[in-house]
Amino acid sequence: MTDITNTPAAEYDAQLGDYFALLKPRVMQLVVFTAVVGMLAAPVSVHPVIGFASILFVAIGAGASGALNMWWDADIDAVMRRTAKRPIPAGKVQPGEALALGVGLSFLSVMMLALSANLLAAGMLLFTILFYAVFYSMWLKRATPQNIVIGGAAGAFPPVIGWIIATGSFSVEAWLMFALIFMWTPPHFWALALFMRSDYDDANVPMLTVTHGRPSTRRHILAYTVLLVILAVGTGFTAIGGYIYLATAVVLNALFLLGAYRIWQRDEVMAEEDNYAVERKFFRLSLYYLFLHFGAILIEATLRPYGLGGW
């Protein structure tokens, strides 16, 4: 006879927080913030309820792709120090549960976004989920050192989706916000790869640091930063820019460029002497960099109805 009392009491029961951790809450914060900025920067106003619901569904979709990523990458996560405590390698959640949660929430979020906003926004969300979970996680990440470059696009789509929620169409401004995140992702992750040392080596992930070496990674960081600086400052002269954005961009990009230049000048001996202080500082700055750029776009958009924002 099967009896429910046979369930072992000592067995760990996943709590709600463990399932929530599968959704990568920190990535979701960035997704929500950039999608909100994309939506508010658009020249069409959105009803607050529709806006709130749509952004929530975008966040759920992003979380779903995070759960699918954790399901697929559980073997890598178990090896890397940075990710070993994630719910699946820690034994808190079964891989099948993560897969079910990811697939279920993907369907739910895309369907609900189609109802709350429009079909194009829902289509873009579906494309983003598939891009991250299938194209990046299942293929690119383990196949090419350019994984971060191309995979970075997945994280860059949310402001475009936000813009489409408001307007129902694409535009140059939306793609500029996309490009900002897209170009920011490689220097951000390569700086992390420099000071996380052996994590990616241990997991056999073909990070640039592993395949091309650390000096090459330093050169790549500088090259991508130069391109990013041109793009970020140039955006200041478009419809989503303005005095506040431009001032913010000039200061941040000067600091970012200086950081990338210092990283390029150093070698491993110098870096190990101060425990990668310059690389760590650059990584921390990169977090503020993106937040403040999008914050400035948001301020410009908020002030525009009062005749203050923009040009």
Binding site: I4, T5, A9, D13, A14, Q15, L16
Partner: peptide
Amino acid sequence: EHELHSRRKGR
């Protein structure tokens, strides 16, 4: 009320 119910109450 089974022990399982109290264990999973929060969830």
